[in-house]
Amino acid sequence: MSTQLSFRVNGTMHCLTVANELTLADLLRDQLSLTGCKVGCDQAVCGACTVLVDGRPVAACATFAFMAEAADIVTIEGLSSTGRLDPVQQAFLEAGAIQCGYCTAGMVLSVHALLRRCSDPDDATIRAWLEAHVCRCTGYAAILDAVRLAARYLHQEAA
């Protein structure tokens, strides 16, 4: 039992027939080799599997692949362009907000969505947004610094 679907991933259109029971995380990882989408808790809690679907952060482990019909998906592999890191990626790098790195892709995408929605978030907003992510290395202070830095970079880009 399968479904045919068309969707865009990182700017490339795909038309695939997928098993109904396939999750979006497995579609991205196993069929499109986009392994930046990590699976941690497998129940929409830890945030490692976050991808952007039509600009909104979505838990790919808790989404059926067929629900992505006609969607525009961005994974961590598609965030940078022409060899230049996205400002959020650059900020995470410079702030040292990466330890083991397992949670980083999901966090970067979530923060990217946050800063598109609110260009100058206060600390409470950042913390509330990051509640959706678990870093088992517990390096949260540097992650908060990275979000503030990313907001500054985006302001500079816009100026």
Partner: peptide, 11 residues
């Protein structure tokens, strides 16, 4: 505004 996390809120 404070129910669940941002990923769960959109879905």
């Amino acid at each position: 505004q404070g129910i669940a996390n941002p990923r769960v809120r959109v879905a």
